[in-house]
Design a protein around this nucleic acid. Structure first.
Lengths: 202, 202
DNA sequence: ATATTTTTATGCGAATTGGTATAAAATGAA
DNA sequence: TTCATTTTATACCAATTCGCATAAAAATAT
């Protein structure tokens, strides 16, 4: 938001670390139920400092979503790189996502599901910016799954079939996020995810 | 909430119809972003009357969820009764749910997805009552799908397989609700749903 | 040192929030 | 008509909301 400047009082907070704290608050409470006072208290900053660094509440939230998407993307990419073969890699990615959704990773502190899937839909019908953010998030996941299948299976599937499989995987993952938010155990969710992967990309 | 009484000033509103209006407001805005003033304005009642009839905002919301679940249940049951065979009935139910999610039915006024899936997750991590409501909603869908498959396929699948298929169908449907909320067209969603049904219960 | 620039801290302020107290209105019972 | 009962309407309450105006603090540049 602001490049480092030579003069002036130095900041006493790290921007991305603070944004991660902000993200946690939205992750737990959702957008509408989160107040700037909660964010201030959770980050240790006061409202004017927050506003100067991240803009309005809405901008903070959208920035949190972006950072979440980026961190989740690289986390899943890493998890999917540990094996070979479409089926095995997809299972590794599903397992990693479920660990994330159930609060068993450094990025996630509690079983809150996916930040975007858990909190964006409630706001999407009210504000087109939120609807666009949700749509972008979904498209990004579709593309991620599609690209993995495309690279891992050589012309075995048509581009149409491939995109359909990717969307089915994303649908399953979003359903899993909701169940994680509802309190399902990670083992239950992994069983569901693995059997779904076996059906979609055997 | 209140049985009809002989004496006293008569009510000038119908309880279930008013609750349907309340439901629409929560459906669009989610729980936290909905104010009692909006509900009052949308129903034509004032806050004290609303409070007397339906209790607190939270009670209004949970009553909306219950009524939605009941209305959706009977609507889908009816849609699924028009054909025979597991595959065909499941497709009919999926198609009907998608019509509902994309605002093409009497019950739904706009493409807001499923009331529960769109709005409950945002609140579920803060309030155990909301988490329980979400969990109950998911369980109800799982059971609905399971019972249909059980009755339509005679011992073709074990109870374990059957429950797994039901959960896969529910996962898909929840993912579809999110995509409806994100603006996907009903045709896109039906294509996805039908191909998924073909994979799960051919 | 003095001035300049940037961040922090205090605190305000107009608006909105969920909920309710109180009184007026509308009905049936006596 | 008079009374009891229930719903409606007005208005208020204390608390919270987001955002910002203003001033103090902390650094560098001159």
């Amino acid at each position: 938001m602001k490049q480092e400047s030579k003069r002036g009082r130095p900041r006493k907070f790290d921007e991305t670390e603070t944004l991660n704290r902000i993200m946690q608050v939205f992750w737990k409470n959702g957008y509408a139920a989160t107040s700037l006072d909660q964010i201030a208290s959770e980050t240790g900053l006061n409202r004017p400092s927050l506003y100067a660094a991240f803009g309005s509440k809405k901008e903070m939230y959208l920035a949190s979503i972006d950072q979440f998407a980026d961190e989740m993307h690289s986390y899943l990419r890493e998890a999917g790189a540990k094996t070979t073969g479409a089926n095995s890699r997809l299972k590794a990615i599903m397992a990693a996502a479920i660990e994330l959704y159930t609060g068993k990773t450094a990025l996630s502190s509690a079983p809150y599901g996916c930040l975007a899937i858990s909190t964006l839909p409630a706001e999407a019908a009210q504000d087109p910016d939120f609807q666009s953010a949700l749509e972008a998030m979904i498209a990004r996941m579709d593309k991620g799954f599609a690209s993995l299948i495309r690279h891992e299976t050589n012309d075995e599937f048509s581009e149409i079939e491939l995109l359909e499989k990717a969307q089915h995987l994303a649908l399953i993952l979003h359903g899993i996020s909701i169940r994680a938010r509802a309190g399902a155990t990670s083992q239950t969710l992994k069983d569901l995810a693995f059997s779904a992967v076996d059906k979609i990309v055997p």
